[in-house]
């Protein structure tokens, strides 16, 4: 039996084979969706760029060459031009991918998970647990996000690490809201009652039965928030509270280029395009993932 037949068989022999088959089917769904593949290609390219930065970049991202300042794209061996200190913008974007991925990755892993736990617990238990957790969420939601992040960073000190922490702390409440709403629709379902009748505890029900139902809305929400997360990091950098110069962070690069926007458009535009393309990639991939993750959408 070939690998293809082993994966696509209607009657898997083991749990492992069944799971591999599901993964394979999900992958085929994803491949069939050209937009999702485009998103995946963008993300893969971003990851490769970050991992191979020293080989992909043409210049040192930090060394300043003042005689070459503000060269237009293509001039003097700088494909995307240079900034106000003569640094190669292309190389800075390549190295900046590392910081962007670092911020996005850590926020995307922490905030939704925390929001999911808070939201499902509030929705499932109800009563005073719900009241306490949701009022706490409301308090976080009531502050403008950037202001709250500012306050956190001001208290914790400037730097990429603290910026990530601040963004994560301000990003979780919407996930908690989404997760709670989803939980409320499934908590009285018969399959939850059935699990309870089998003696399942609250932890098992929330993790195994409630969370899978919330996951697709949260994943979509996360991918839509990616652009916002990058921009919040940029905003913090702009205010001198995020990535510190000379670190090549995309948002910081935009705010530095703002001063020359009319005469030297490429300084701010190039990192802006980078943010745009990466956000688009996350959105496309997220949309495709949602479809692929839902077993019900599989062709029958």
């Amino acid at each position: 039996m070939g690998l293809g037949a082993w994966l696509t068989t209607d009657t898997p022999r083991s749990r492992f084979q069944a799971r591999m088959g599901q993964t394979y089917n999900g992958w085929r769904d994803l491949v069939r969706n050209p937009l999702a593949m485009l998103g995946l290609a963008i993300i893969v390219a971003l990851v490769l760029m970050a991992a191979l930065a020293p080989w992909v970049a043409t210049h040192d991202p930090i060394v300043q060459t003042l005689k070459d300042r503000l060269l237009p794209p293509g001039a003097g061996g700088h494909p995307l031009g240079t900034d106000e200190l003569g640094r190669d913008i292309y190389s800075r974007i390549v190295y900046g991918a590392r910081i962007t991925l670092y911020i996005v990755g850590i926020v995307a892993v922490t905030a939704p998970v925390f929001g999911l736990v808070v939201g499902t617990a509030a929705g499932y238990f109800g009563g005073w647990v719900d009241t306490v957790l949701m009022r706490l969420t409301d308090i976080f939601l009531a502050f403008p996000r950037l202001i709250l992040a500012l306050a956190f960073v001001a208290a914790l000190g400037a730097g990429v690490g603290n910026a990530i922490l601040a963004i994560a702390l301000t990003a979780w409440p919407p996930y908690a809201r989404v997760a709670r709403a989803e939980t409320l629709t499934v908590r009285n379902a018969d399959y939850i009652a059935a699990a309870r009748l089998q003696g399942a505890g609250a932890t098992r029900i929330i993790l195994g039965h409630v969370m899978p139902m919330c996951l697709s809305s949260v994943i979509v929400r996360v991918t839509l928030d990616m652009a916002g997360i990058i921009l919040t990091a940029a905003g913090l950098g702009f205010l001198g509270l995020g990535a510190q110069p000379p670190l090549p962070e995309w948002g910081t690069m935009i705010s530095a280029g703002r001063k020359f926007l009319l005469d030297h458009w490429w300084v701010a535009t190039m990192p802006g395009l980078a943010i745009f393309v990466v956000s688009l990639g996350f959105n496309l991939l997220g949309d495709g993932l949602r479809d692929a993750l839902d077993p019900r959408s599989a062709p029958r």
Binding site: D190, Y191, A193, L197, Q198, H209
Partner: peptide, 29 residues
């Protein structure tokens, strides 16, 4: 209680978790 009394629900479309395979449903208890 679960070891002594079990229940079969009215609507089989609602009593099985839509994201769990039959294997997972039966492995749970």
């Amino acid at each position: 209680f679960a070891r002594r009394v079990q229940m079969v629900f009215q609507d089989p479309y609602a009593s099985l978790h839509p994201r769990h395979t039959i294997d997972r449903v039966l492995a749970e208890p």
